[in-house]
Amino acid sequence: MTKKSPAHELLTNLENFLAEENFGESPKELYQPIRYILSLGGKRIRPLLALLSYGLYQDDPEKILGPAAAIEVFHNFTLMHDDIMDEAPLRRGKATVHEKWNPNVAILSGDVMLVRAYDLLLKSDHQYLPEIIRLFNQTAAEVCEGQQLDMNFESLTVVEESEYINMIRLKTAVLLGHALQLGAILAGAPSRDSQLLYEFGVNIGIGFQLKDDLLDVFADQAKFGKQVGGDIISNKKTFLLIKALEAAKGQDLMELNTWLSLKEFDKTQKVNAVTALYEKLGIRKLTEEKMNFYFSKGFDQLESISFKNPDYHETLLSITQDLVHREK
């Protein structure tokens, strides 16, 4: 009989914990949006990583449901505020908080989510609390730095590859690394292992974002679940566009710059033309190579740790590999 992965039970316990947590009641306009955004679901990958990381070393991961949930509450706080900045109408197929209520409600409700994330962190074993709070604060500030850099890129003509990698490291990857490090620290893991798990999360996170960049252009529309080519339509400075601008010469560069400068255009025509240029310039292969470099580096770090519970190591490896090979 095949042994059941611990992930399903951990996710069930996490969902129950979030459903039962009392974030506050009145005024309802402040607290309803918190329950609303958390009810929209998602993979819960960040708190799951914390629970699995803890489970590598200890047998009672339910002990850290509070701190793991803090990561998810913080993540959703950032989404709530990001949606306002992006003027996004939808989140996971449903109206965003600022659309369902209004931007002021979304700002204030997001603020209180951050406060509640700290309440959940306080459920940590107190001997680890100073380090946990310090690392959480560092990560939270880095996520904000990444978001600001991403916004800065919108007005820059040229963004270097190293600048882009640093931006996605901050905006996306450090929170994955922090989730894994949090679980390891609370489990009393050796400091070398908690650092390796952090670096594993960061490298995998960079790879995930590069995969997203790639899927946005080259995904199968039927599997992708959103418009393929959205980044091309909006001139978003992804890894692909940065490398194309570096590689293009002569007529290719003129054509690419023409598409970037047009204010009015046929969306399908632009996506097809720019995608064809990417193919001609070998951008897909370049992106896959860079993505696989970070994935490989991350998995090497995961294989370098010591651990007590092989089931959790196998599950952690399996879940991250599934995300690496996803098509949407």
Rank of each mutant, 00 (worst) to 15 (best):
residue 57 Y to G: 12
residue 50 A to V: 07
residue 76 N to Q: 13
residue 40 L to P: 06
residue 75 H to M: 07
residue 42 G to W: 00
residue 37 I to A: 13
residue 69 A to D: 05
residue 48 L to G: 03
residue 59 D to T: 10
residue 39 S to Q: 09
residue 49 L to E: 06
residue 71 I to R: 06
residue 71 I to P: 10
residue 72 E to K: 02
residue 68 A to Q: 07
residue 60 D to G: 11
residue 43 K to S: 10
residue 56 L to I: 10
residue 53 S to G: 08
residue 47 P to H: 11
residue 75 H to C: 09
residue 65 L to V: 05
residue 63 K to P: 06
residue 49 L to P: 06
residue 38 L to R: 12
residue 36 Y to V: 10
residue 69 A to K: 08
residue 43 K to L: 07
residue 53 S to V: 09
residue 66 G to I: 02
residue 75 H to I: 00
residue 51 L to T: 00
residue 37 I to N: 15
residue 59 D to C: 05
residue 43 K to A: 09
residue 61 P to Q: 14
residue 47 P to V: 05
residue 41 G to D: 10
residue 67 P to F: 00
residue 47 P to D: 07
residue 69 A to Q: 09
residue 44 R to M: 11
residue 36 Y to Q: 03
residue 45 I to H: 13
residue 53 S to H: 03
residue 46 R to F: 03
residue 66 G to E: 11
residue 41 G to K: 09
residue 54 Y to C: 03
residue 71 I to G: 08
residue 76 N to P: 14
residue 55 G to C: 02
residue 67 P to M: 01
residue 50 A to L: 05
residue 42 G to C: 07
residue 72 E to Y: 00
residue 57 Y to V: 15
residue 36 Y to E: 07
residue 55 G to K: 05
residue 51 L to Q: 01
residue 54 Y to S: 03
residue 69 A to S: 15
residue 42 G to E: 02
residue 39 S to F: 00
residue 50 A to P: 00
